[in-house]
Design a binder for these strands. Structure first.
Lengths: 143, 143
DNA sequence: TATTGTTATACTCTATAACTATA
DNA sequence: TATAGTTATAGAGTATAACAATA
């Protein structure tokens, strides 16, 4: 809607602004995926954040999501109610609850990751050479 | 936390995944900016979406934000309470309210756009040649 | 009748503070 | 005393449905 041509006039800023457009386009897709799986967006992100192969304490998830522990309680309640994750006792400390992704949770998560990894059409349309160039530059940036 | 190396093994998918990391890094910055301006994240996005030079009806903002009209009522209430936007009558149709960004709103919005345009350090650290290459590929992708 | 915006309602997200059970 | 997680509470985002004013 608004013009937004206010960013500093450098190649990197223009590139960053263009990337912003790609991400704006992804928002509706994420909402669609969330509702398709019967998950709210935060629940979706929480499930995607969890590693099916490596249980973490509630506090670890809170840290990864950059939110308060008390918030994670509700998110996990929702995921657990659908049988996607389970709370287990930790051996070393009886205060902590380890989050375990169930088999069903892992399957849902895998489909989730797959769908969210789908390329925006603008990137898919790039030539193979451009796709490699893009990857190489971003590798150097994020190494 | 999770590995997520599940995406198809192409250059474009790797690039897309790397871009995802850049955006994850931007979330805390957006939250910080929002609280710095005394705005909630949705209010922030709403203000950024509005064009100070071109009033739009409430429904136009709802469409741009991809949410229900009823939601915009509350968002605009908040922005209006801080004197950042005003509701005006439309000449042609007495049902519609046009949203006008106030002078103060435009100033806040300008600072907002400026802060959000700041480059992630990973991009700023790229060589000038890489920055140009990145821009050029993205230009070809997004026209 | 259809549409714009608001209000009523309900549910979720989120944080803070108080509480529990451990440590 | 300090920490992990929960609960209580409060405020904001969001959608649906009902409504008023206008088209």
């Amino acid at each position: 809607m608004a013009a937004d041509a206010v960013a500093p006039d450098t190649a990197a800023h223009e590139a960053w602004s263009l990337m912003g457009r790609l991400f704006m386009d992804m928002r509706p897709r994420m909402l669609r995926v969330a509702s398709e799986f019967g998950l709210s967006p935060p629940q979706l992100i929480a499930l995607k954040t969890l590693d099916p192969a490596e249980p973490v304490p509630m506090s670890g998830l809170a840290q990864a999501l950059q939110c308060d522990n008390s918030n994670v309680t509700g998110l996990v309640d929702g995921l657990a109610a659908q049988g996607l994750v389970e709370r287990r006792e930790a051996e070393h400390d009886r205060r902590v609850r380890m989050l375990v992704v169930t088999e069903r949770g892992a399957a849902v998560r895998a489909r989730l990751v797959e769908v969210m990894a789908q390329l925006p059409s603008e990137l898919a349309a790039l030539s193979a050479a451009d796709q490699r160039a893009l990857r190489d530059v971003l590798r150097r940036a994020l190494g």
